[in-house]
Amino acid sequence: MNGHRAIANARKAASGIWMLGVFVFLFAPLVVVVGASFDGGERTFLNFPPKELSFRWYGRISPDLFESLGLSIVLGLTTAAVGCLVGVPAALGLVRARFPGKSLVAAAFRAPLQIPAVVTGVSFLKLYYLIGDVTGIYVVGTLPGLVIAHSFLATPYVIGTVSAVLQRFNTRLEEAALSLGASRWRTFRRVTLPVIMPGVYAGAMYAFLVSFGDVPVALFLGSSGMQPFAAKIFHLMEFDFDPTLLAISTFIIFGSLAAIYLLQRAVGLEELSRSGGGN
């Protein structure tokens, strides 16, 4: 009996060490950034561990950083919404319809993942001008222009997560609702949608994060008033190093943790993860 417990304990310890290692790996750079943001010196570089504690950099974050942060949040949410509007019907069709060449269609939906982001940026810039020549509407440097390109990048994630849920979905529920006289739309809204919702949330989360982290596409499609946050800090780092960058990064780090936590409270990551099972 004792031997068993010893083995179980050893196993627990091994698991614990493994997890700890992974967390150290993932969080160490973030800890350094957060730590350095509290360094008080008049510096043009990172100091870690901080030599004197201070919040001075937090007070100096320039308002346009907050502006572009706000823009990134709006952009990310819109991208998530558009990605779902396009991705959910696509997933329904891909999983449920039977038609020749389905794997080809699936590959086409996945294709944006294989295009290097720099190429997406340049080619969308060109595309927007071509569209502008025909329609007279130029979306270069506008929010819609960024939303279209980011939705292009993000939709495959939504399709992936929603498809995964649909594959496990029992169609008998829908059949029952239909046979009881519910309209097709009502059946979709009341039966299908609630079940695939976790997949939709997960997809929306991926879409938001893809949009929020993008630099290369935004470099080409942004403009003066339309510069998303990640591209903005990329610029800041290119010239000289501004410690307020660390301060606002700290906000981002805690903001992301809080957002995921809230999402988990609202939807349950258990559900989210269930939607990630494959594609």
Binding site: V122, Y129, D133, V140, L219, G222, S223, S224
Partner: peptide, 24 residues
């Protein structure tokens, strides 16, 4: 006055994309 900020090479890419159209 509005500023279009990017490294000069990226701004050149924007001019190339906009070739033959109103100046960006």
């Amino acid at each position: 006055v509005e500023y279009v900020t990017a490294p000069p090479r990226d701004n050149l890419a924007k001019l190339i994309a906009a070739k033959g159209r109103p100046a960006p």
